[in-house]
Design a protein around this nucleic acid. Structure first.
Length: 275
DNA sequence: CCTCCATCCTGTGGGC
DNA sequence: TGCCCACAGGATGGAG
């Protein structure tokens, strides 16, 4: 999916079209997209006629405040994107949810349907996984000491722990590899084996890597599953140091980048720079 | 609590 | 061209 930079780019792209706007119509064309909504009819019922107050984000979740103390939640999953269109514009395949304001349509396009939408009451929100999300990796990064405590004694690879949204929210598979390369820590190292200096290096790498991704509008892979709300592709792909560069030379030292499988996900890393 | 792993989907690209 | 397999930006629930 879309990781933090892509989700934040999406949030910014939607803001002018949703902040302060009234929702006149909401419909889902695939029941699966509402699977987190306790009763799926609540989704349209709670949105229609209400105004969106503010667009927030925590980690990879979009959290839109809606009149009546409601939170409209979107997770883009692996292949989700949001489009801003005018009514009548041709629809992309897999347009699974459509939200209309007075003069625009917000379309949730998600081929793999790993994403979801829901409109939660405060109680429902408190009972959801969103309540268990760790601090946002961009806006709320905890100090190294706190991170070190969360890694202490942990057996899983640091790469897996970086992807654990309960520890820090927002890092995914691409930026996780980029962060570890910048911090010069090998992805397979057990979390509990890191020295405090290594934890500090990772902590220091998170902000710059995520901000660089954000600056270029995120990373659109070849399949273009992720696009900005206006339809443009993110431009960070060419700037990636390791992700997807299996066999290519490390830009720092020239050694061939390796691919390893860690927790059933690909990890790309430089065996000389990272140890 | 922790760790591991299968699972939910559709699309694409490579090898034969 | 067609077929089959591997793989893809994520999160979760259940087993142990």
């Amino acid at each position: 999916m879309p990781e933090l930079p892509e989700v934040e780019t999406t949030r910014r792209g939607l803001e002018p079209y949703l902040a302060g706007k009234r929702i006149v119509h909401a419909e889902s064309r695939r029941a699966r997209m509402l699977r987190r909504q306790p009763r799926d009819r609540d989704f349209a019922d709670r949105l229609q006629g209400r105004r969106v107050i503010a667009l927030r984000r925590q980690g990879k979740f979009l959290l839109f405040d809606v009149e009546g103390d409601l939170t409209w939640v979107t997770h883009l999953g692996m292949s989700g994107r949001m489009e801003v269109a005018e009514p009548g514009d041709p629809e992309a395949k897999h347009t699974n949810v459509v939200i209309r304001t007075a003069d625009h349509e917000i379309r949730f396009v998600d081929p793999r349907t790993f994403g979801f939408m829901a409109v939660f009451t405060p109680e429902e929100l408190a009972g959801s996984t969103i309540a268990r999300l760790g601090p946002d990796a961009l806006t709320d990064l905890p100090p190294s000491r706190a991170l070190a405590l969360r890694l202490e004694g942990r057996k899983p690879a640091i790469k897996s722990l970086l992807l654990d949204q309960r520890i820090v929210a927002g890092v995914g598979n691409i930026y996780g590899d980029e962060i570890l390369h910048r911090a010069r820590v090998a992805p397979g190292r057990p979390g509990g084996s890191l020295t405090f200096d290594e934890v500090k290096a990772i902590r220091r790498a998170i902000g710059p890597v995520l901000r660089a991704g954000l600056k270029y509008g995120g990373t659109s892979l070849q399949d273009l599953a992720y696009l900005l709300p206006d339809g443009r592709a993110g431009e960070y792909l060419d700037r990636l140091e390791v992700y997807g560069r299996d066999g290519e030379p490390c830009r720092r030292c020239g050694t061939a980048i390796r691919r390893s499988v860690i927790s059933q996900r690909s990890s790309f890393w430089c065996p000389s720079c990272q140890s």
